[in-house]
Design a binder for these strands. Structure first.
Lengths: 111, 111
DNA sequence: TAAAGTAGTAACCAAACGGTAACTAACATG
DNA sequence: CATGTTAGTTACCGTTTGGTTACTACTTTA
């Protein structure tokens, strides 16, 4: 279930960072969750091509890391709401800089 | 050879960013190359656990994206030196923020 | 009684990724 | 003539990741 981590015996800080956000979906989930609360199903719709299984796994991992907050309501049908924690919100300005940085890189001339 | 990209029809900027640096090694290579020029073999030694094949592929992709500069000398034995482009250098302050952000996240309590 | 709606989970399979070992070219040295 | 040196590449294969489908539980509505 859990993703495999890069070994990091010499505690390289960037390797540590990559072990947290260096995968396909984590940053995208943070970005989509920016400033709002969304239910599981809404997240699944907004994030193109993600499967419910993978979304579920990622959210679980992010909750464990303290990036995402999960609030479950005992209703029928069930309702579960996801939002960013303070830590998650702190990632946003960094991601915005990343977006700005990558703006002028072209992927069309592909390998 | 080339990594598969996340589909991004609605041109989500963070998805675009993740298509560039959202993988195991790219950011780590940028970090190791910060402010210096290294030969292929030196990179392979400094980056723990990366295989020469994967390193070669990553560098090729990063060169294509304009993040890394490759200088090859027609000597025997061959010498190839890698360094960051201006674009690559611009990524560094962002990566440093990422390192600072991730500092207090604990991975030991693992999924 | 049947269907609909939600948030998952389990089993299973396909695709992507990563690693290993052997190999190349080209010259220098012993 | 064999060996070492470097930056790769190729073929092969195992691991990891991702995707699909079906299924659950519970209650409301038709």
């Amino acid at each position: 279930m859990a993703r495999k981590l890069i070994e990091n015996h010499n505690e390289c800080p960037i390797t540590h960072s990559m072990n947290i956000i260096g995968n396909k979906w984590t940053s995208i989930i943070v970005y989509v969750l920016a400033g709002r609360t969304l239910r599981f199903g809404e997240l699944a719709i907004r994030i193109d091509k993600i499967s419910r299984k993978v979304l579920s796994n990622q959210l679980k991992e992010m909750e464990l890391r303290g990036i995402v907050h999960r609030e479950s309501y005992a209703e029928t049908p069930p309702r579960v709401e996801y939002s960013l924690t303070k830590k998650g919100e702190e990632l946003l300005p960094i991601l915005n800089q990343l977006c700005a940085w990558s703006k002028d890189i072209d992927l069309d001339m592909n390998p």
